[in-house]
């Protein structure tokens, strides 16, 4: 009970930190503009003539997150190390885990807020037709889980360095791999080399696991995939923070 109170204290501080800097507002505005632009102009929402958000809206999320989530996660630990506040934080009567989870939760909740602010798209499609709102909801859940996986990876890269820029670039590259492993052109190449490898490679892609959510299927394996990426990454973060201090 007490440990969750500590986690929540950290989470509150981190959330407040987002909103006292312009980062939060810039992020939300860019995210919403991108969503709007790609859904209605590039994604051909109107031309499709169907009441669905899957192709025109959710298909773009893995690519938006590729740039935006590392930007949200990059400051989590890099900034603490640069300013030296990590020394304060880790000498408080809390465990490193509470700090890690608290920081992660704050960013994840922030991403949830950004995602929730795309609600006008849902209203639009409901106004124009009769979409399956169950599918939209599961796709939202999937999108949020996917963002969490990216974010947890950004936590690792942020703990690795005191430079936010380096953190941003490394996590972008890692996340790009997670997308490309399930990207059709890449899969085609792998299929020519060795068809057996395809299943293995695509299993590690966020695309493969996001696909199910987009169809409205809540598959426990997909949920477990994202949760285990998050768990593993946060664990790695704790190891990095510990080895960094061990000198």
């Amino acid at each position: 009970m007490n440990s969750w109170r500590n986690v929540w204290t950290i989470t509150k501080r981190e959330l407040a930190a987002y909103f006292t800097s312009p980062l939060a507002y810039v992020f939300i505005v860019i995210f919403l503009l991108l969503c709007g632009f790609f859904t209605f102009f590039v994604g051909g929402f109107f031309e499709r003539q169907e009441a669905s958000l899957v192709r025109p809206f959710f298909d773009w999320h893995p690519w938006f997150y590729l740039f935006l989530v590392p930007a949200v996660g990059m400051r989590l630990w890099a900034e603490e190390r640069r300013v030296g506040t990590i020394e304060l934080l880790l000498t408080m009567p809390i465990t490193a885990w509470q700090a890690i989870v608290g920081k992660f939760l704050a960013s994840w909740l922030f991403l949830a807020l950004a995602l929730a602010l795309t609600f006008p798209v849902v209203i639009t499609v409901n106004y124009l037709g009769r979409p399956d709102n169950g599918v939209i909801l599961t796709a939202y859940v999937g999108s949020w889980l996917m963002a969490g996986a990216y974010l947890a990876i950004s936590c690792i890269t942020s703990a690795l360095t005191r430079s936010q820029v380096v953190s941003f670039i490394i996590s972008l590259v890692v996340c790009l791999f997670l997308i490309l492993a399930g990207f059709p052109p890449v899969i085609n190449v792998i299929e020519q080399v060795s068809p057996k490898l395809v299943d293995l490679v695509t299993f590690f892609s966020v695309m493969t696991h996001f696909e199910g959510f987009q169809k409205g299927v809540l598959d426990s394996r997909d949920i477990l995939f994202f949760l285990s990426v998050i768990g593993f990454s946060l664990f790695t973060t704790s190891v990095i923070l510990r080895t960094h201090r061990a000198g």
Binding site: R13, V83, G84, T85, E87, L88, M92, P93
Partner: peptide, 20 residues
């Protein structure tokens, strides 16, 4: 945790969260 609870610490260069 028990030991840290008894302690107050002022690190070198007095770091503090600049955004607060």
């Amino acid at each position: 945790i028990e030991a840290k609870r008894l302690m107050g610490y002022l690190p070198e260069n007095a770091p503090a969260y600049t955004d607060m």
